[in-house]
Nucleic acid binder design. Structure first.
Length: 733
DNA sequence: CACTGGAATTTCTCTAGTTA
DNA sequence: TAACTAGAGAAATTCCAGTG
């Protein structure tokens, strides 16, 4: 093949360990070179005595050298073969997959890319966003990218700080480096580039800056948070989302409550894709105060809501709101509202102050029923539901909590039954956690769908539902999220306004705010939601959250369930069904009332089949995803390598086709539902279907042997008769 | 309790070795 | 030489403990 072969020499195999040899190798893409071309070019650069091997493999030359310095040199300069420069790459991969964890969706890929580029990384791919297996549209906060590290860096830091969030960063072979310059010699605090934002000097952080003055002891060199003269603050609820101070006091002594200023400073609502980082508390990124005065009335653009609020302030006389089209549900918390109950049509209302006298007062002003739970006289707090009179509303169960923390209501509206829990969660996290766990237990026995509404006294996301956006540990938040997961509840306001930042409670000094009042709905109710909004409510530190449901929008019920008989081929399903029947046989009604038992059994069979097919469907989707990924990979290989064997690829494609065919069979089965539902009734659907079939069965034209086209129905019939008569006549020619 | 560093585990991909 | 497979290694992911 080339001259290199003719000079083969036996070399000791113990010259260098394999690992080192790999690091000492470079690869050059073969451009119809001969070994001598490559070797001559390399000898000119580094000397022939420094070349240990030159092997052609899979369309590239692997050249192994004695010294790693030569490897670096060649990678940096390339190689000149026949006057043309060619790129030289290392054999060991220098591409890294860098994963970031806990990345909120509001952080843009560009922000992450910019941060990595600041380190000198060369990005080699787009960001991949990981999602939950069961919820492929929901990101789980993990993103990764392929990149090349800068030559001077061995590793990226273990975390990066973007948009006020610490993001965990990981990659293979990671080591501790400076978060600023990536040097492995020091950490960020000791980095020359690290300067105190207070004085601009190196060597200390702002909190330890000698120019900083503690407002407690008036000494320099530390902030009040680190003040040695101050006893540690009691572990207090900083997680009640700025609610604790005011409301907790309110519960203990209502005479100490500050009134809301007559002209409260307005709050600015910002629609943004992401919250701005809060680097300095003195420089809030999300302004609460604004120069624009905010009217005390509702500013919502929803005409229905606007009308309701105008009515609020214009009249206090009795009203019958049954004429409203929508079922309106509102929740807000009123502080120090001793004057009179609000006559707005309500289903849920959580009150800091609520007792028998307010209840009675409200009765005078409200034409419908008022269902309340309150805890008095020691502390006035409670929840209430105002039910419209004369509407198609039927309350069939009402359960108040003796502590005034919640009330439970089962109601049917426009034929749709649901259960409402109106809650007023405690201010202290530990109490709130316990309270939410109790609520979770109570939810277990109520018929779905469920609406959980009220003042939760905690936010779900500290970055978008709270100001300032400082992380706020709260053990009760986990309990609330567990409830939401277990009962498939969604925060409907957030779902409708994914990027809007709006709060339901603002502190009297307007320095803190949070969205702690919300509606959590079962997913099955979401489609009935006409609107959900937050609007200003007068004389209260809490804004009003309004939810409008319209049960006439969609047909009720989940439709007809059809048994997918393909699962009968599944032995595990069959054995599960056999076990189920055996278990059911043990029940007493099997002997007492076989028909009733059979009805119950059918229901159990249906539930088991649905559950089984759901799991099977999920596994199938996962399998398909894997197959698609593998197929893509194999296709890439097929394109890359000319001698690629397509067996595996074909096998994978066959498997994917099989699963797709199963899906198509399922779709065909489901498509018969309409026929099942309507085909057997002499409905419009049935008659149209029949008509369509009739028209399909009729010959509209016929071509005779002579080549003439006949359109007349009588002539067509005669021609058909003649044709077949001739066809079956023995002596036809 | 958030952040950090890293170990442990799982999953995926590639390669070297074996067999027909 | 093709096909196959076990195993290595890398990547992805989870978990845990120390620290401030």
């Amino acid at each position: 093949m080339d001259s290199a072969k003719s000079t083969t020499a036996v070399q000791s195999s113990t010259q260098k360990p394999c690992a080192v040899m790999k690091n000492n190798s470079v690869r050059i893409t073969d451009n119809k070179f001969e070994a001598r071309d490559v070797l001559r070019a390399l000898s000119d650069d580094i000397g022939k005595e420094n070349i240990l091997g030159c092997v052609n493999s899979n369309g590239q030359w692997i050249v192994t050298l004695k010294e790693t310095t030569d490897v670096e040199l060649l990678q940096a300069t390339g190689v000149l073969i026949d006057g043309v420069g060619y790129e030289v790459r290392g054999v060991t991969r220098n591409l890294l997959t860098v994963s970031l964890f806990g990345v909120p969706v509001f952080i843009d890929d560009n922000e992450l890319s910019d941060k990595l580029r600041e380190f000198g990384c060369i990005l080699k791919s787009a960001w991949t966003h990981k999602t939950y297996e069961d919820f492929p549209n929901v990101e789980n906060g993990i993103r990764y990218i392929r990149l090349e590290l800068p030559s001077n860096a061995k590793s990226l830091p273990y975390s990066i700080f973007i948009s006020g969030v610490h993001l965990r960063l990981k990659h293979n072979g990671q080591s501790r480096v400076c978060n600023i310059c990536l040097s492995s010699d020091h950490i960020m605090r000791e980095c020359k580039q690290y300067t105190c934002k207070e004085c601009g000097m190196q060597g200390h952080s702002e909190s330890k800056c000698p120019r900083v003055k503690c407002y407690r002891c008036q000494q320099f060199g530390h902030k009040s948070f680190d003040c040695p003269t101050t006893p540690p603050a009691p572990k207090e609820d900083n997680t009640s989302e700025m609610e604790t101070n005011d409301s907790a006091c309110a519960e203990q002594d209502n005479t100490t409550i500050q009134d809301i200023p007559d002209n409260p400073q307005p709050r600015e609502t910002i629609e943004t894709d992401k919250p701005t980082p809060t680097e300095n508390e003195n420089k809030p990124s999300r302004k609460i105060n604004s120069s624009q005065p905010k009217p005390r009335n509702n500013e919502t653009t929803d005409p229905a809501t606007l009308n309701t609020e105008k009515e609020d302030n214009s009249t206090s006389q009795k009203r019958n709101l049954s004429s409203e089209d929508d079922w309106t549900v509102q929740t807000r918390k009123m502080k120090n509202n001793k004057k009179k109950a609000d006559p707005t049509p309500n289903l849920a209302k959580a009150q800091t102050f609520w007792d028998q006298s307010i209840h009675d007062q409200a009765k005078l002003e409200w034409d419908g029923d008022i269902l309340s739970s309150f805890y008095s006289p020691a502390r006035r707090r409670g929840t209430s539901c105002l039910i419209r009179k004369g509407s198609d509303n039927d309350v069939h169960h009402f359960e108040p909590d003796i502590n005034g923390r919640f009330l439970k209501l089962s109601i049917t509206v426009d034929g749709q039954s649901f259960t409402v829990f109106n809650i007023y969660a405690p201010n202290t996290p530990s109490e709130r956690k316990q309270f939410l766990e109790d609520i979770s237990g109570k939810l277990r026995n109520v018929p779905e769908p469920i609406i959980l509404a009220g003042d939760f006294n905690t936010v779900l996301n500290t970055y978008v539902d709270k100001y300032p956006t400082t992380p706020n540990p709260d053990s009760s938040r986990k309990s609330l999220k567990l409830i939401m997961t277990e009962y498939e509840l969604v925060d409907i306001w957030r779902e409708r306004h994914p990027s809007l930042i709006q709060f339901t409670r603002t502190a009297s000094n307007h320095k803190t705010a949070s969205r702690i009042v919300r509606f959590l709905l079962n997913k099955q109710l979401v489609r009935y939601v006409k609107s959900c909004s937050i609007s200003r409510y007068p004389d209260s530190d809490h804004d009003m959250v309004e939810l409008k449901l319209d049960f006439t929008l969609f047909p009720r019920g989940p439709g007809v369930w059809i048994f997918n008989n393909s699962i009968l081929e599944d032995t595990s399903f069959c054995s599960e069904i056999r076990d189920l029947i055996e278990r059911e046989k043990q029940k007493t009604c099997y002997d007492n009332n076989i028909l009733q038992w059979y009805d119950v059994l059918k229901d159990s069979l249906k539930r088991t089949a649905i559950k089984f097919t759901k799991v099977k469907s999920r596994l199938s989707r996962t399998h398909q995803r894997k197959l698609r990924k593998q197929i893509n990979h194999e296709r890439a290989k097929a394109q890359k390598y000319q001698d690629y064997d397509t067996t595996r690829l074909r096998n994978l494609e066959f498997q994917l086709d099989e699963t797709t065919r199963a899906d198509i069979r399922g779709a065909a089965l489901r498509s018969r539902i309409k026929w099942f539902e309507e085909g057997e009734r002499s409905s419009k659907f049935f008659l149209n279907l029949d008509k369509s079939r009739q028209s399909q069965n009729v010959m509209r034209q016929i071509l005779t042997d002579e080549g003439a086209i006949i359109n007349d129905q009588d002539d067509i019939i005669h021609e058909q008769a003649r044709f077949y008569k001739t066809l079956y006549t023995a002596n036809r020619q």
